[in-house]
Amino acid sequence: MTILRSATTAPRSVTGLRSAQSKRAMITVLGWSVALVIFFPIFWMILTGFKTESAAIADPTLIFSPTLESYQAVQARSGYTRFALNSVAVAFGSTFFALLLAIPAAYSMAFLPTKRTKGTLLWMLSTKMLPPVGVLVPIYLIFRDVGLLDTRTGLIIIYTLMNLPIVVWMLYTFFKDMPKDILEAGRMDGASTFQEVFFLLLPLTLPGIASTGLLSIILSWNEAFWSLNLTSSKAAPLTAYIASFSSPEGLFWAKLSAASTMAIAPILILGWMTQKQMVRGLTFGAVK
């Protein structure tokens, strides 16, 4: 009986294996293709940064003699460091405050939901659908009147508000996956709400919080609309630095690319180092 069964099922399982393998290969190819398409502009930008100005506008080619000319020119012109420090301060500062506000908000939505919690969440996210330019004038005027134009504080406030809906939403989904029993056990053990969050919720949802924080940092780092409109020199972050290479003397592709590469390098490296964490966090709910 068993012999018979294994004899008949063996060939089928081999073909099953084969089709599973080819399926996996196809998915791999597809994944790589999508990744390459997404990565190509970045790759081309990095490449262009190592070209001379004339090579940059010549017919596209992969073969050229690399040069650091553009980097030297970019370095010579203005203080990269100042812009970079602004970017760091603004990205980390806004992320810190966004998490500070979002953790209690997400806690109450995940663990003490009311009938309107879902609606509140959707409403928060819907604010992201409004084009930011729609509120540019009022915000500009308010910033001017309270003296927040061209200040890091101003940008931190704007970025905190900009990222808050997404941060709350993400934390909410992570918190929802946390077994309620554990928090209740903590409450039975005498934990206050703050202790419950600090000793139990935060350590246990750390991967999710980390990936949320990383996403917020990346979004703030790459934000250009508000930084270009609300800062000029003192508080200008790297996005403004890039933009400064496109205006007065016309477009210099190689220098622009070199500047852009330098601007995104820190965040790219950060992303690279934490990619495991990111993926784990972003798929936290799905695979657990």
Binding site: P179, D181, I182, A185, R187, M188, A191
Partner: peptide
């Protein structure tokens, strides 16, 4: 009175141990 101040202890079906 809050749960911790009732002088009770509870054992949960899921154990609810602190995993970390």
């Amino acid at each position: 009175v809050g749960p911790a101040d009732r002088g009770l202890a509870m054992v949960f079906q899921s154990y609810a141990l602190y995993p970390h």
